[in-house]
Design a binder for these strands. Structure first.
Length: 465
RNA sequence: GGCGGAGUAGCCAAGUGGUAAGGCAAUGGUUUGCAAAACCGUCAUUCGAGGGUUCGAUUCCCUCCUCCGCCUCCA
């Protein structure tokens, strides 16, 4: 597949460096609360990315970390009166549950920062030995940006008016640590009183690792000094990924990530999502409004990953209808195929365009459009062609990670006796072609909060929500 | 202010130097006592505004307007 690369700003073909397995790393969540749909846009697109590679026959190694120590996890665990590990374990479990609902494939490896402190300390020691880092008097360690000429290549720092020297004066008064240059970033944070019990021993004294370091250390541990792709939300380009490049290339040599895949942020109702605006949605918030995680997933893949996606409740309703339409189309296609037919998956039949879209810079909305168009074409197919089309459709749905809703599962709701009696009465009136009375009775049912829909030989009662 | 991205029908949203995918909503018809459901249709002379290049631009260039992101630990 071809994918846009943030570093070179070009579309490039993806080929595993080692020729067999595509190895990639995704910056995972900081577990101090429930992830919101903006976080999940990134994780869902990374999931579609992986599924597309695998559907195309490429084996993958997917590593995604859990950030379980930083300012926020420490602060909020203290607020909650829990130990850091107890606190982050609970939110990690919640994250996993949400991921499963969204149909996200679990990463092959999911390392946590706290479990990799020795590796982080080792990396810092190497950076100091090579002259890329220095310890300050308080026991913190900083990366010396001036020691790495390549710094800023990913975010094009040299083209920005970010004068690393100049900003120092303006901000040094509020800086709590002692750095040579303000732009230098922290690798090891000396223990502070507010850290409570959350500190570890190091050659530089008690403290904890800086945020940027964990990814570099875990990448080295599981992917080595060179690997295929690194991914995250756009906000991580600077400084997080920039710092990772500096740390890893200086400590390990190697070229680090061969490709950078960044997902653009989600907008809600045309603007930034924020708690104060009341539009920061978690899966739970949306479930409370009656929307399933799969409907959320459909909306999230409904826009190209490099364009802003405007999330609205209206688009969620649209997703429900669209999924139902897809499910119906899939059922109709399946009905044309003899049960037991061996489904060929050599090509995608009428869904070839959809598959091509997915492989052309992960164009998920293009792929969805192609599926609906393909479904229309597939309606005219039969026999082996229909079987091949069905196979193609199934592969595509798997690549997108979409699980289609089952045929209208009738919910068994308790129907009050008076409602039931009224309905029976109306049904009899209707059978007697007494339309006037029939309509009056339906009006009464409506007032009780029930709608009555007539079928050929029976009727259905539905609670009006 | 610097850098980056975006403005396509009521909403979500693809796409292309050659005359606008798809989904939702809406709407017409068939059907149904009427509804609902289902099925079959319709639905952007136009792509933020104004210039330019071109036989031809929504697509390339310039200017302007609006929105969004990043600018030191936010996916």
């Amino acid at each position: 597949m071809r994918l846009f690369d943030t570093l070179t700003r070009t579309d490039r073909d993806l080929r595993p460096i080692d020729g067999t397995t595509f190895r990639f790393y995704c910056c995972g969540p900081t577990v101090y609360g429930p992830a919101h749909i903006g976080n999940f846009r990134t994780f869902v697109l990374q999931d579609v990315f992986r599924r597309t590679l695998e559907t195309g026959g490429t084996r993958t190694l997917h590593v995604r970390n859990i950030t379980d120590v930083d300012d926020k996890t420490i602060r909020d665990s203290q607020k909650a009166g829990k130990s850091l590990s107890e606190f982050t374990a609970a939110w990690t479990a919640k994250f996993h549950a949400d991921c499963e609902k969204l149909g996200l494939l679990p990463p092959h490896i999911e390392p946590g920062a706290v479990a990799h402190i020795p590796q982080q300390i080792d990396m810092i020691a190497r950076l100091i030995a090579k002259g890329h880092a220095y310890a300050s008097e308080d026991g913190s360690v900083y990366f010396k940006i001036s020691s790495f000429p390549g710094y800023g290549s990913l975010s094009r720092l040299d083209e920005r008016e970010l004068d690393l020297g100049k900003t120092q004066n303006a901000r040094s008064s509020s800086d709590e640590y002692e750095k040579d240059s303000l732009s230098d970033f922290v690798l090891w944070k000396a223990r502070r009183p507010e850290d409570g019990e959350n500190f570890w021993q190091s050659p530089w004294g008690e403290g904890r690792p800086g945020w940027h370091l964990e990814c570099s250390a875990m990448i080295e541990e599981y992917l080595g000094d060179s690997f295929d792709l690194h991914s995250g939300g756009v906000d991580l380009v600077f400084p997080h990924h920039e710092n990772e490049i500096a740390q890893s290339q200086c400590a390990c040599g190697g070229h680090f990530a061969a490709h950078w895949f960044h997902i653009t942020h989600l907008l809600v109702d045309g603007g930034k999502m924020s708690k104060s605006l009341g539009n920061l949605y978690t899966l739970e918030d949306l479930a409370a409004k009656g929307f399933s995680a799969m409907e959320v997933r459909y909306v999230l893949i409904g826009a190209h990953y490099r364009k802003p996606l405007n999330f609205t409740l209206e688009s969620l309703s649209g997703a429900r209808e669209a999924l139902a339409k897809l499910a119906k189309g899939a059922r109709q296609l399946a009905a044309k195929v003899e049960p037991g037919t061996l489904l060929s998956s050599a090509d995608f039949g009428p869904f070839q365009n959809a598959w091509n879209s997915l492989n052309n810079d992960l164009n998920t909305p293009g792929a969805l459009g192609g599926i609906f168009t393909g479904l229309r074409e597939a309606a005219h197919l039969s026999g082996a062609e229909a079987a091949a089309a069905l196979a193609g459709l199934n592969r595509l749905l798997r690549a997108l990670g979409l699980t289609l809703p089952e045929e209208a599962a009738v919910e068994s709701v308790e129907i009050p006796a008076d409602v039931h009696a009224l309905a029976e009465k109306r049904w009899q009136a209707r059978l007697a072609k007494n339309w006037a009375e029939s309509d009056v009775l339906r009006g009464q049912l409506t007032e009780l909060g029930w709608s009555m829909k007539d079928g050929k030989d029976s009727y259905a009662l539905e609670k009006i929500s």
